[in-house]
Amino acid sequence: MSSGAERIVLLSGRGEEEAQAAEEALQRSGASWTILRCSWFMQNFSESFLLDPIREGTLALPVADIKEPFVDAEDIADAAVAALTQPGHEKRRYELTGRRAITFAEALACIAKATRRDVRLVPVPPDAFRDALLAAGVPKPETDLILYLLTTVLDGPNDKPADGVRAALHREACSFEDYATRAAASGVWDV
């Protein structure tokens, strides 16, 4: 490539039309590519807009009982390093997920167990969720993206775990329980 890059690793999303368009553009580029198509990150619960509500003990989201095979960002990082530094990952697409699909309520139950605190999910209508984010000062473009991810991307078709972590790294993906235990030990959810 004219930029001097020998390998490109694209972090992509499962079930996102825009992400698939970026994947197709990369595949047509002539570059040596690897695509890491990921489910929702486990770290969404310990960073960003979910962190403070979890610390407060109540997470209000416009989600039903949809299951998601949340993936550990450390597994994603390990797969990216492998793709950039080891042969055999060229022109491969890995679907990176956790070991099993769980609901947000089940994820919060894991966090509650790890923190020894009550943490509960309160389902709310999408419009009420949007209004709450905007009232909290979240910029409209970020609010729209979060709502899109929670209502359009998180709609059920991506609920099956995939074997991408095993294929890329030759080991099991991190479990949500292990992530919750590790995150709780870091003190991130302490109040």
Rank of each mutant, 00 (worst) to 15 (best):
D190M: 11
T85V: 15
S29V: 07
R92G: 00
I102F: 07
R117L: 12
T152L: 07
L133D: 07
V165W: 02
A132H: 00
A135F: 04
A22I: 07
A105C: 13
E95A: 00
V71T: 13
T97K: 03
T181R: 12
R55F: 09
L26Q: 08
S29K: 05
A77N: 07
A112C: 13
W189G: 00
E90C: 06
C38N: 08
E17F: 12
A64D: 14
A173G: 04
S29A: 12
F45V: 05
W33T: 12
A183W: 01
K113L: 10
G30D: 06
C174H: 09
P141K: 03
L121K: 06
T58Q: 10
L108K: 06
A128P: 05
T58I: 13
V153L: 11
W33L: 08
D159I: 02
A82L: 03
D78P: 01
L36G: 01
K140A: 11
Q20A: 11
L150P: 07
I66G: 14
F176P: 11
R130W: 10
S39A: 15
E16W: 12
A79F: 07
L61C: 04
F70N: 12
K113Q: 13
E95H: 01
S175R: 06
R99G: 15
C38I: 02
G187Q: 04
H170R: 13
I8Q: 05
Y148R: 08
P157R: 00
A128Y: 01
R14K: 15
A31I: 07
R93Q: 06
A162L: 03
L36A: 11
A5C: 12
D144N: 08
P161M: 06
K113C: 12
S186L: 14
A64R: 06
L121N: 07
L36S: 07
R14A: 15
S12F: 09
L133N: 09
A180T: 11
A162D: 10
A83C: 10
A173M: 10
A19P: 02
I102M: 12
L11N: 02
T143M: 10
E68P: 09
R130M: 14
F104E: 12
A101H: 12
G57F: 13
V122Y: 04
T34S: 08
Q27R: 15
H89A: 10
L59Y: 09
P69F: 03
C38Q: 04
R92E: 08
D178G: 14
V9T: 03
F45N: 07
A31Y: 08
A80E: 05
V63M: 05
W189T: 02
R99V: 15
A31M: 09
E106W: 04
T58V: 15
V119H: 08
D127P: 06
K160N: 09
N44D: 11
G30M: 09
P87F: 00
D75I: 08
D78R: 09
E172V: 02
T85P: 04
E16H: 14
R171G: 08
M1A: 13
A73Y: 09
L61H: 01
T181A: 15
L121Y: 05
V63F: 04
V153W: 04
L154H: 09
V119P: 06
L154V: 02
A101S: 14
R120F: 10
R120N: 11
L150Q: 03
P123C: 05
E74T: 15
P53H: 00
